[in-house]
């Protein structure tokens, strides 16, 4: 809800200011918006479909089973990969991470999961490539994944 309010609040202010200054330019802005929206629509639909599929197949239960109480590198790496692939809303992801932690998963595993979850987006890659380019997307996500593993390692050591 805060999201919608923020965006529409900004839009309202912007539109009023724009209309006061020039109606023609406001129309031009809408034209640009329409074109950009049409161009991104296919990749947006793709992303929505993949998000649904990954969340439908990888339920919180399945994730718990995969990264559960098993310690060690395999669990951490699995958690990092799952975090990188899925796009889970934080309101679902953090309670899940919290319960996994209490169930015996290591801090390293949980921080790998949380960090790749927010830093790396495999399912949103089609849209990122469309808007920001292949090179940018690969670099951002690749380096983000490496950084997430490093962060997980440091957190695992410091928060023992």
């Amino acid at each position: 809800m805060a999201t919608v309010l923020t965006i529409y609040g900004l839009l309202g202010l912007g539109l009023i200011a724009s209309l006061v200054k020039s109606r023609e330019k406001t129309a031009a802005a809408f034209k640009i918006a329409g074109k950009a929206l049409m161009k991104t629509a296919p990749s947006l639909l793709t992303v929505l479909g993949i998000v649904g599929l990954t969340l439908g197949l990888l339920t919180p239960d399945t994730i718990s089973r995969l990264v559960g109480a098993e310690a060690g590198w395999v669990a951490t790496l699995t958690a990092a990969v799952i975090g990188a692939i899925t796009l889970i809303p934080s309101i679902v992801a953090f309670p899940l991470a919290g319960s996994l932690l209490r169930a015996g998963a290591t801090v390293m595993t949980i921080s790998a999961f949380v960090t790749t979850l927010v830093m790396v987006g495999v399912v949103t890659a089609p849209m990122e490539i469309k808007t920001l380019g292949k090179k940018f997307t690969l670099l951002r996500n690749g380096l983000g994944f490496l950084a997430a593993l490093l962060i997980a390692g440091i957190m695992g050591v410091l928060l023992k």
Binding site: S18, T40, L57, T59
Partner: peptide, 30 residues
Amino acid sequence: RSAQVTWDYFKEMALIMPAIFVLMGLMEIW
């Protein structure tokens, strides 16, 4: 389950995305 998730996200996007693109258009112009 998948269809439900996709539908939920679709509703959210249908609400947000047009506004974002108009904001972008305004930014582009002004």
